[in-house]
Design a protein around this nucleic acid. Sequence first.
DNA 1: TGTTAGCACTCAACATCAAGGAGTGCTAAC
DNA 2: GTTAGCACTCCTTGATGTTGAGTGCTAACA
Lengths: 342, 342
Amino acid sequence: MELDERKKIILKAVIRNYLETGEPVGSRTISKYTDLNLSSATIRNEMADLEEMGYILQPHTSAGRIPSDKGYRFYVDTMMEEKDREVVELKEMLLERQDKMETLLKQVAKVVAQNTQYAAMISAPSTHRNKVKFIQLSRLNATQLIAVIVSEGNIIKNNIIPVAEEISDENLLKFNILLNTHLTGLSMEEINLGIIAALKQQAGVHGNIIGEVIDAVGDAIKADDDLEIYTSGTNNIFRYPELTDNGKASELVGTFEEKQQLGTLIQETLEDEAGTGIQVYIGEESPVQSMKDCSVVTATYELGEGMKGTIGIVGPKRMDYDKVIGTLRTIQSKLDELYKKD
Amino acid sequence: MELDERKKIILKAVIRNYLETGEPVGSRTISKYTDLNLSSATIRNEMADLEEMGYILQPHTSAGRIPSDKGYRFYVDTMMEEKDREVVELKEMLLERQDKMETLLKQVAKVVAQNTQYAAMISAPSTHRNKVKFIQLSRLNATQLIAVIVSEGNIIKNNIIPVAEEISDENLLKFNILLNTHLTGLSMEEINLGIIAALKQQAGVHGNIIGEVIDAVGDAIKADDDLEIYTSGTNNIFRYPELTDNGKASELVGTFEEKQQLGTLIQETLEDEAGTGIQVYIGEESPVQSMKDCSVVTATYELGEGMKGTIGIVGPKRMDYDKVIGTLRTIQSKLDELYKKD
DNA sequence: TGTTAGCACTCAACATCAAGGAGTGCTAAC
DNA sequence: GTTAGCACTCCTTGATGTTGAGTGCTAACA
């Protein structure tokens, strides 16, 4: 069977109505709601077809129809074609320039959650392809050095390095020059074994310390990998009974607190990124188990120079996709602007 | 009326039974449960007295009794007298020495939550009374300095300082010596206007920059105040219907995510600290609105030298106070040990 | 051939009602 | 002071009926 024009109109009407009310929608409603001028009986026949085709389903025999995952998918796809540039006015949107990346991200998550009334999460931009901008070793005391590593985007990392023997001021200065000349401007991937060997050689007798230092630098960089994710509006899930019934709330709250599983979502988004960087996971499509009853919309944002992160919105399948996608687009561009002012 | 010995026994029996079952407990149950050898009728009379005195209450006319806040308070107080040193075996307790304070705290929260099956939170130890150990200014580029401040306990803070005019290497070195000689060993409160004025004077022409630097140092220290709190096991609240019915879950989850309100709890605990550093807030006693239906047990822990933080456990009023307090005691001593190995 | 009116049917939701039972308060007897 | 007995309360549970929204099917219509 084919999804002809009339079926499409009816399907959209069913979905749109369900998004608004959250109640199963019947044939009579559609008959009045659309301007097709068809009787409820005709609509019923079409709806039976749509059900057979898997776009809608009945919670029980004598109830109206609700969209299936496949139905939502159809809706999202056609909707995204139609209004690709819908601008959404954000209430109380205040994203000031923040020194601290952490504060900025928390703020973004909060704004997104408040505007959409769904749960929001945001991952810190990966520093993966980031370049080292500045390294400094200082002596904290006889047995400890402190390494400060600054990368593009002014992400600062510290690490305390224990050392066996004391290092003279002279050597410390030498190390600093050595490290900065050799490592500045390199991305983390580019610091390979060859460079490390060369550094060790030039460090002479204190070569072993250079080893420890490089390890520490590696540590500092890896530490960033262990997903910094901020969430906001987790409690918005309680607005939607279908997410919180039957103990589902517990799982979802757990996922949002643990953040580990959110990482897989972020990962997935970053990997198969489409043109606009916005993706919609409906129900079973979601890579996260606890979100099989939700829809998840993710967007990659960019703070320039490959500093990519992900924003995610989690809500019921009957979420307001228009608004959510619009909000994410707006946020994307706001973040873009923010960086350009730099 | 007086709370005589028999009444105490009955009250305790009621509470203990209610802690186990979560159901209102009737006179017949108590008559069998205790070894008082009293008939249910006698118990009934006593229970009527206890209700009049406000220790227990009836959900409805023909139901058994449940403890009131006052009842719980009595129970907790007498219980804490009796077994002040109960040792609780912690399952899977693995607190390894962690370089990163953050990782350690998250781990503690997780261990506590898993062991007690309640929601747990932990605040980072305050660096308030902490002493400056090391300050270093470095030049990031022509217009930016980076300040690294290390305090006792190796808490590291960074701050980027924008500067109008470029500073020579020579001056930078001078500044560093100046800052370290004057500020090292001082607590944050001790850095007063007098010292700042003296520093500015000695800095000469670049005095204004010193001002900015001090401000940044202040910033770095204040930044720590904005409560680093980690939570774990928030979803444990779903184990207890009395915490999640009627939309209460939403509020609680919100509180745990926002963390701001948890701050007041932490604050309160740190302020009126008793001997053992453990406090119990039952129902209305809690300073946090959303926890008026919960009990909260908090404990201050110490990582030596005035580095005090707070651990909190949030659960239903019918929580297993014995176990919770035992767990907190154990954690307290483990953390103490951990620091001593330093 | 597509559309529609009509009708019997289904089923969740809701209200009503009775039975069961846990527990109480009170009274009178021990 | 303690206890047995009894009437009473009120939640809980399950059964029963009613309502209403919505369906599928059929036959008639354009």
